[in-house]
């Protein structure tokens, strides 16, 4: 067994993001968020919070926190890199499939973990628009954001 690192449960990209998660909120960091999205709950075993700063309708900066598994950590970390600099429109239409692809894949039963960060991002954008008192042009297109860990199906993920 020479090459055991390649035998890790998840892909090398997942591993990298799990070991070195990007854009997490540091312990004493002050982050003046323009929008905050929370999804999941500790009781479900996964909880996710995404904080965004918005400038010129683009994601100017982003921090996140999670109580979640390796896949949740890695996919949220990946999401955070992908979302930075995107317009709100683009960010809102990031999909779990795009994140999963960037990660080089996730095991089937871990697919839902990539949904969490993504949903939290949308919730943060919703929150931002609401705080701004602006109309939300995106929200009607998608199901409402709740913890659906156990009921998210591939079909639903395709739909998102």
């Amino acid at each position: 067994m020479t090459n055991f690192m390649s035998q890790w449960v998840y892909t090398p990209v997942v591993k990298d993001h799990f070991m070195n998660p990007r854009n997490t909120l540091k312990e004493n960091e002050q982050f003046e968020a323009d929008g905050i999205g929370d999804v999941g709950s500790l009781a479900c075993g996964d909880q996710m919070q995404v904080m965004i700063k918005v400038k010129d309708d683009k994601i100017a900066d982003l921090r996140w926190l999670t109580y979640g598994c390796a896949s949740a950590i890695a996919s949220t970390s990946m999401m955070s890199e992908m979302a930075l600099g995107l317009t709100l429109d683009e960010a809102y239409h990031l999909t779990p499939a795009m994140i999963t692809e960037a990660l080089g894949g996730l095991p089937e039963h871990k697919f839902h973990c990539s949904v969490l960060g993504d949903k939290a991002l949308r919730a943060a954008i919703d929150d931002y628009l609401e705080k701004q008192g602006r109309e939300n042009p995106f929200k009607k297109h998608v199901a409402k954001v709740i913890c659906e860990c156990k009921s998210v199906t591939d079909v639903q993920i395709e739909d998102l």
Binding site: F18, M19, G45, Y67, C69, A70, A72, I73
Partner: peptide, 14 residues
């Protein structure tokens, strides 16, 4: 509390 099981397992595995 506040540390998820699988993540602990995998960090320990590393």
């Amino acid at each position: 509390p506040h540390a998820e099981g699988e993540s602990i397992l995998l960090y320990l595995d590393m």
